[in-house]
Design a protein around this nucleic acid. Structure first.
Lengths: 273, 273
DNA sequence: GGCTCTCGATACCCTGGGGGTATGGATTCC
DNA sequence: GGAATCCATACCCCCAGGGTATCGAGAGCC
């Protein structure tokens, strides 16, 4: 099969409408209809049930949609990784305030390596790191367990620390020297993307989170190292029995890139000292 | 990128020779050269270092070869799975004599389900099951742990049994009621494909293995259930401390096929009783 | 019931790119 | 230095893939 046809099919299968799919693909509807017919003929299997009023997926079509999407993302990921293998630059994906204050040192340590290349730090939204890694847009990512999922990636744990509570300066618990999780019962926690809704406000980035905390709409448990970056109207309080979170660096399992290996090595070295 | 170009590139990267690659692809050499040039131009990265005498991969080319192969196999796997989703038939891959004598019952039990469809049992060589599964040629496979690797597949364990020694009837240990692993010290075990060579004869299928045992060239530890299928010139002897092996049924993690789910259910049900 | 609107399929045309052959030019080997 | 090898270039040709116009089948509306 040809990846062009696959792209066509995925577009139609997602839109369930030839006209819209054609627009999305930047082409006219008739050649799209024909291409799908070709595809079905060659594969010897019906992918779509169509009447003049509706388009629906057959069982085979559902399989091809699911698998096809994966193939297409793998294809563009391969493209990206290849392109970046040509450019002498590493791309590191991280969400803000999740570097455990180690990134500066890691970058400095790596830069000291005479064979080092430029490192672009790409700050992304919460939970987007693994997407960037999977799509081949980044060479490595800083993840935080258990929030992020290292599935399909190799990773190296760098730092484990206990979460602290981040509160508005005016919060009833803001003056306490330390807290327990029980003290936080009944508090409103934010709704992280990709997690089940808990009634709290949906938070997409850290600045937004900080703002919501300052407004008293929510409070958060953040890695201890986040303490250093708090706005003056927020305070952090240790929570003696808060969950531990682990920062790790992750990369595509089968990467053979020397610069990446050197960077990971630098990260581990800095974390161990 | 287009999968056709990717196929071209992979062929050249594997052959490191435009002429041979072109032959393999069933085309002439000049259009192949051009296609690769196009690809490099569009991606903005050199994939091959070529002189008039030699072709070598660049770093970027190595990345594309590795990732591209995977994409291409995923593509053909998607094609196969789609085609088979259209045909009302399940394909089960197994190597011979590894069904723990359960397969007959499983097939009967599944066939009793009114919604059941035809099941094709595909007997394959040793260690080939996961390849067939990965390539989308089979819907499910019988694996045996720890010999087979369920990586990337969902699986359900069906049966754990202790290996027995399979010996020629004339072997010095053939008359013993039971053995220990220590008794087998110094015996020549076969070399399984995909495992490191151990000096023993390479064995690709069970018939061959049985023949080699009968000839006294090797002996083997096989699942206890293999006992039933021994040739008359071979005997099996329990080994009290032999490793345990587990038979499992494995399938692509994200399969949504109803017939497959029903079949797995039947297999588990039979194994549990 | 007939008018209209929607939407996929069909008919037909046209262009560009992918493939072919012939040949050039560089390198290696005898 | 001549021959052989092998990738690149030059040039041609054809059809696959894309466009426009239109048909035909359902659905909804009055």
């Amino acid at each position: 099969m040809d990846s062009r046809e696959l792209r066509y099919f995925v577009a139609v299968a997602e839109e369930l409408h030839f006209g819209r799919a054609a627009t999305r693909l930047g082409m006219a509807q008739p050649p799209l209809s024909r291409a799908i017919q070709h595809l079905e003929r060659r594969m010897g299997v019906a992918l779509l049930d169509r009447t003049s009023r509706s388009v629906a997926l057959t069982a085979a079509g559902e399989v091809l949609l699911r698998e096809g999407r994966r193939v297409l993302t793998a294809l563009t990921a391969a493209e990206r990784r290849t392109q970046r293998a040509g450019s002498a630059r590493l791309v590191l994906a991280m969400k803000p305030v999740s570097d455990g204050d180690l990134l500066g040192e890691i970058l400095a340590d790596y830069a000291a390596d005479p064979a080092s290349i430029e490192v672009e730090v790409r700050i992304c939204g919460i939970g987007e790191q693994s997407g960037l890694l999977r799509a081949g847009e980044a060479d490595a990512a800083l993840l935080r367990f258990p929030h992020d999922d290292p599935e399909g990636f190799a990773h190296e744990e760098l730092l484990t620390e206990r979460d602290v509570a981040v509160l508005p300066r005016t919060h009833r618990l803001a003056d306490r020297g330390s807290l327990t999780m029980a003290d936080l019962d009944g508090e409103q926690f934010p709704h992280w993307p990709g997690h089940p809704p808990n009634g709290g406000p949906l938070v997409r980035d850290t600045a937004q989170l900080m703002q919501l905390i300052a407004l008293g709409r929510t409070i958060a448990l953040l890695p201890g190292s986040a303490r250093q970056h708090l706005r003056p109207d927020l305070v952090s309080v240790p929570v003696t029995d808060a969950p531990m979170t682990t920062m790790a660096i992750a990369w595509p399992e089968d990467s053979r890139s020397r610069p990446l290996a050197a960077f990971v090595e630098a990260a581990v070295k800095v974390a161990r000292r």
